[in-house]
Design a protein around this nucleic acid. Sequence first.
DNA 1: CTTGCTAACGATAATGATTATTATTAAATA
DNA 2: TATTTAATAATAATCATTATCGTTAGCAAG
Lengths: 145, 145
Amino acid sequence: MLSPQQRLDDIIGKLRQRACRITPQRVAILKIFLSSDEHPSVERVYEQVRADFPTTSLATVYKTVALLKEIGEILEINFADDRNRYDGLKPYPHPHLICTRCKRIIDPEVTLLEQLKSEVAQSSGYLVLSHQLEFFGICPTCQQK
Amino acid sequence: MLSPQQRLDDIIGKLRQRACRITPQRVAILKIFLSSDEHPSVERVYEQVRADFPTTSLATVYKTVALLKEIGEILEINFADDRNRYDGLKPYPHPHLICTRCKRIIDPEVTLLEQLKSEVAQSSGYLVLSHQLEFFGICPTCQQK
DNA sequence: CTTGCTAACGATAATGATTATTATTAAATA
DNA sequence: TATTTAATAATAATCATTATCGTTAGCAAG
């Protein structure tokens, strides 16, 4: 487990190896992903990065997201109607628990998932490479209303 | 477990109760969903229904899909980049196994999922209403290539 | 430190799946 | 069969995301 600072340096090193340029915008966007546990959307990151770099373009956020996704440092969470959300803290497949009222997303503790995965691989003959598990419901706060 | 014909009659009855009109287009679209195990996209259903009713509009397919989704008779499967797909045979949450090469979707047998669900509900305090579980991989056919 | 190369930037147009609009058609009921 | 109005076909609008393109600036070499 790396500290946020170590991970930042690590990822920047990875980008350098790819001959990617280290721009202030990229670093700012990266920092937002590494420090946010709210599973932000592109739009949300855009708002936040504009606080420090007011001229940043939405396109730059999208392109940085695509880059970080490609090198496996953020995880994309897809939605039917809503915009995609991203997880920069745990950029590997893991379950999410989503409140359909307030759109809050948390990471529930789950066991047994790996067993489930190999069960599926075995019985189907598929080479299972990835997965996506989302639970939808109402969070405790929204239940009280 | 109802036969396809029984289910068709059943759903048509349900639509009548809602004061929905039973049009040839709706019946044709419904029949396609009830007889297809390929988890078709809207576009795919559109192609198929046009074989029998060449003047059918894409908008009609979309609206019928929205209706059937609303009454819980088809299940929507969301994708990141690709178009949505639909399952009219098992219109309740269940896992899918998706080949990322040929886009084929099958329904793997899975146990333990209900336990997993109540585990998550218990530890989080959320009221868990639904879920979505997708496995991504390479199907046996595509592995040989 | 300056220069040159070119990746990345900002601005904005294009894309593409889905949704909304509207005039017309045709189920359903009397 | 006529009346009512939901559903249809055609098509415009929406909106998240992607592509384009002229300009800017990271960075390696001198």
